[in-house]
C-alpha cells in the first residue's frame, strides 16, 4: 500500500476514545462490585496447622545438625511415624480439591462470584465492541511493524493488504483489556482487584493439595542423615579464643 489510509476524525471521537473510556469505567466499576461481593473467608484451622507443621518440619530438616541426635530422633519419630505422626497422611484421606469444593458450597460460591465479576463485564463489552465497531480501523500507530503483529493489531479485519500499523477496533479493545492495569493501579491503589493475570494465577493454584506437600516433607525427613555439628563447633570455638587471646 503506497498511499496511507486516511482515518476519519469521527472515528477517533466516536470509537477510539469512547472505547478506552468505557474500558476504564468498567474496570473501576468491576473493582467496586468485587469489593462489595468479597467475603472475608475464615481460614480453616486444619489448613493453617498443616502449613505450620510443614514450616516446622522444614526447620527441622534444615537445622537438624544443630541439635543432639537424641532430640533429633525423637522429633523425627514424632513427625514421621506411621500411626499418628504429624506428617503422616492416612491413605485416601487426602482431600482432593474437587471433592472439597463439592462438599463446601461456600467455596464454589466464592469461585462463582470471582468468575462472574470477571467474565460478565468482559463478554458484555466484547459483544458491544463486536456489534458496533466490528471492522473499524480505529487507530494508527506511528511506527511500522512486521507482519507477525497482524493478528495482534488487526483482529477482525481480514485484509492482508492493510499496513500492520493500523489497529482495528477489536484489537484496540484487547489492548485496552490487558494494557490498562498500570492505569488501574494508579487510580485504585496498588492492590486492586482488577488484576486479571494475578487472578488467573490464583485459579491455577487452586488445586493446591496440602497433603501432598506433607508427604513430600515426610520423605525429605526420612532421608535426612543426622550429623551433629556441635563437636566441630568446639574446635572452632577453640580457634576463635586462640585468635582473641593472641590479638
Amino acid at each position: 500500500m503506497a498511499e496511507d489510509l486516511v482515518l476519519d476524525t469521527a472515528i477517533r471521537d466516536w470509537v477510539l476514545i469512547p472505547l478506552s473510556v468505557v474500558m476504564v469505567l468498567i474496570g473501576v466499576l468491576r473493582y467496586f462490585v468485587s469489593k462489595l461481593m468479597r467475603t472475608t473467608q475464615l481460614p480453616d484451622s486444619k489448613i493453617i496447622k498443616e502449613g505450620q507443621v510443614i514450616i516446622r518440619a522444614r526447620n527441622l530438616r534444615a537445622a537438624a545438625n544443630f541439635i543432639p541426635s537424641k532430640a533429633f530422633r525423637a522429633r523425627k519419630l514424632y513427625y514421621t511415624n506411621e500411626e499418628n505422626g504429624l506428617l503422616h497422611v492416612p491413605k485416601g484421606q487426602g482431600q482432593n480439591p474437587q471433592a472439597q469444593m463439592l462438599s463446601d458450597p461456600n467455596m464454589a460460591m466464592d469461585m462463582m462470584k470471582k468468575n462472574l465479576s470477571m467474565i460478565i463485564p468482559q463478554t458484555l463489552t466484547f459483544a458491544w465492541v463486536n456489534f458496533f465497531f466490528s471492522g473499524f480501523v480505529a487507530a494508527k500507530i506511528p511506527f511500522p511493524l512486521t507482519q507477525r503483529f497482524r493478528s495482534m493489531l488487526q483482529n477482525g479485519i481480514d485484509l492482508s493488504t492493510v499496513d500492520v500499523s493500523y489497529v482495528s477496533s477489536r484489537s484496540w479493545y484487547f489492548l485496552n483489556l490487558f494494557g490498562l492495569r498500570g492505569l488501574f493501579s494508579l487510580i485504585l491503589g496498588e492492590e486492586n482487584a482488577t488484576d486479571d493475570t494475578q487472578r488467573m494465577m490464583q485459579m491455577s493454584g487452586f488445586g493446591f493439595d496440602p497433603s501432598k506437600s506433607l508427604g513430600a516433607e515426610k520423605d525429605g525427613l526420612d532421608i535426612v542423615q543426622h550429623d551433629w555439628v556441635l563437636p566441630k563447633f568446639e574446635q572452632r570455638a577453640g580457634d576463635v579464643l586462640r585468635k582473641r587471646l593472641s590479638s
Partner: peptide, 16 residues
Amino acid sequence: QTAKKYYASTIELTGG
C-alpha cells in the same frame, strides 16, 4: 558434655 558443646558454639557465634 552436651552443654559444654553448646557453650562452645555460643563462643563461636559471638566471637568469644
